Computed example of a mutant assay.
Amino acid sequence: MAVLLADRQLGVRTRGTPVLDVHGAEMTGPLGPLRGPWPGRAMPQTDGTWHLALDRQAGTLLVGDVVAEPATGTEWTVLAADEVTSASDPTLGYVRVKARARTSNGTRPEGHP
């Protein structure tokens, strides 16, 4: 079994719970204030995405929410998130996030200006 330790402090800015507009499409609000930070981990992947691990206090994260590292100003946009709990000890767990790095102009695919 491997244990990955936190290597930074991460917080979250969420858009809130989606609601349906008059046409039945999901809508979310603007990004809220930073919650956290808590101990976390960020690991770049070969496909340009990042795998992030956040404290369970981050709560439920949805696509489009933002994970932030206040110490550096680095931000990531959530692509997918799941809460992971240890089968041997339910008190151990974290929020696993697949994300893409944000730029000052928003999130954009690598190689595109």
Rank of each mutant, 00 (worst) to 15 (best):
E26H: 06
R100K: 08
T49D: 15
E110P: 10
R15I: 10
L62H: 15
P18G: 12
S86T: 08
V3E: 15
T49W: 09
A58P: 11
R56Y: 14
T49H: 13
A71T: 14
L61M: 02
G111I: 00
R96N: 13
T28W: 08
D47T: 14
L10H: 03
D7N: 04
A87G: 07
T28N: 11
G93Q: 04
T14W: 01
T91Q: 13
A101K: 02
G11H: 13
V66A: 00
T14H: 01
G32P: 09
M1D: 14
A99Y: 05
P44Q: 12
V78D: 10
T14I: 02
D82W: 08
S86A: 14
P109W: 08
T46P: 05
V12S: 02
R41Y: 05
Q9N: 12
T72N: 11
P70C: 03
L34E: 04
L34A: 02
A53S: 15
R13W: 03
D55Y: 01
G48N: 14
D55I: 10
V97G: 08
W38Q: 07
R56N: 13
T74N: 13
A81Y: 04
G64H: 02
T17P: 03
L92G: 03
P18W: 02
A42N: 03
A81H: 01
L52P: 06
L52Y: 09
V97I: 14
A25I: 11
T77K: 02
D7L: 01
M1Q: 10
G36H: 01
P33A: 12
R8V: 12
P70Y: 00
S86G: 02
R100M: 12
W50T: 11
V3K: 13
T17Q: 06
D7M: 01
P39D: 04
L61K: 00
R8Q: 12
A68M: 11
A25G: 10
V19C: 10
V78Y: 06
W38D: 06
G40F: 00
A2K: 01
D55A: 15
H23E: 11
L92E: 09
D47A: 14
G40A: 01
N105S: 09
W38I: 06
T107Y: 05
T46W: 04
P90L: 12
T14E: 01
T74P: 04
Y94D: 10
L62P: 07
L61G: 02
L52F: 14
